[in-house]
Design a protein around this nucleic acid. Structure first.
Lengths: 227, 227
DNA sequence: CTTGACCAGTGTACGCCGTACACCTATGCT
DNA sequence: AGCATAGGTGTACGGCGTACACTGGTCAAG
């Protein structure tokens, strides 16, 4: 067990997959802003340039990270009730994205779709089609769901800061927001703290949209273009 | 007209507002990634550090830019039809955000709300309340609208690249997406090219949501929490 | 057994970034 | 006249992504 042998044993050859996993873990642990090629290399006990044998550049690294997390989303369930199927899948996507808070922003920042995202969207479209929606309606429905399809949209921010008591200055300047904050505060939601129940909000919007889609489907909606 | 006088005349004293406007213009012209303090300073014929007399740092510059563009959104119209009012305002926001394609991402990247965004959201909540929605419903409705409230969400990407003919390889791997692309291609929408009519998609989703909200309002919806 | 191609990993270097800090210099108040 | 202040300057530092030339180890062909 010379030093050389030790080096051999503890150094798994560092393939692309290991790089991506380490990058995801690092982003999870320290935030996406702290993810640099240099820090990542350090984490892998390697010199920065070594990474470039496995990813072309940082953009491709980010693409790979996106594919890695999107690959964690459950495959679609099977069943006759398309709304159930879609709902379950989207909530799975949401769960995954909530585990990797950086992922939503990174996905949005990609200039083109990555394969895993494409596959996800494709199977989602398939679920709509299997549920009896026309291709036309499915198309518009996918657009309507927007980023909600991918389970994120935690919304911009909470409007109320992390602090506890309602800011009196805020109430003076933004009365309606203050009112909403008050509403959120004193209904006994699952989040004991000041905030509102994100999960409830998410499902509220999701169900509203799904109900809307079902209504359109039942009435045989088709995109009536004005010439 | 010594050189000194010339310097005096052509150098308007560079206040915060001029900095923000120049930053917005530069981001519009060259993209948000090309906006650096150094490039911005150069644009203003000034040394980089001069900017720091007017903005604390780059984050605050971005905050200011957000407030600048959000300030361009039309004030809310008045009228008895709340859906009309809200719809018009949101479409105004969308118009503004489409003029500054970088703005959506920057807004999402802010850690806290900026004053202009807060004011915008507040007056939007006011429109819902004036329309007869309860504070409770308004709260959830604001969440449901999500980023659509701010008029963006051009959606992740177009799924079909900028190229013309449908990629046969894509069709093989992602049949449903290919089907949607075909649907979008041969209905004679306003965009003659391959893409779909973003404006139509946006209004489709918007109206679906607004109709859903109106239904809830009419039936006196209230958030029925399961304890 | 030698040779040479081919990797994965290294080391150095460049140009860009945000910005801390010390410095000027004109302006305007006392 | 004296002086504080505000706005613009110059220099410098540490971090970033990554181009490019290299090295040592593996392995097939001669």
């Amino acid at each position: 067990m010379t030093r050389q042998e030790a080096a051999h044993t503890h150094r798994i050859p560092l393939n692309r997959d290991r790089v991506l996993r380490a990058a995801v873990a690092l982003a999870d642990a320290t935030g996406i802003d702290a993810l640099s090629m240099r820090r990542l290399a350090q984490e892998l006990d390697v010199v920065p340039m070594a990474l470039y044998k496995h990813v072309a550049n940082k953009e491709e690294l980010l693409d790979g990270m996106v594919d890695t997390v999107v690959g964690e989303i459950d495959p679609p369930a099977t069943g006759p009730d398309w709304q159930r199927v879609v709902r379950g899948r989207i909530l799975s996507a949401r769960r995954v994205l909530l585990c990797h808070p950086w992922a939503a922003r990174v996905i949005e920042s990609r200039t083109g779709p990555t394969p895993a995202v494409l596959a996800y969207l494709d199977s989602m479209a398939g679920s709509f089609r299997d549920g009896g929606l026309s291709a036309d309606l499915t198309h518009h429905v996918m657009h309507a769901m927007g980023s909600r399809l991918l389970g994120f949209s935690q919304e911009l921010f909470d409007a109320s800061g992390p602090s506890g008591p309602p800011d009196p200055g805020l109430a003076a300047h933004y009365p309606h927001i203050a009112e909403l904050a008050a509403t959120a505060a004193h209904d006994g939601s699952s989040t004991v703290g000041g905030g509102c129940d994100d999960q409830f909000e998410f499902e509220f919007a999701l169900d509203l949209l799904l109900d809307g889609f079902e209504g359109l489907r039942r009435q045989g909606w088709t995109s009536a273009r004005k010439a």
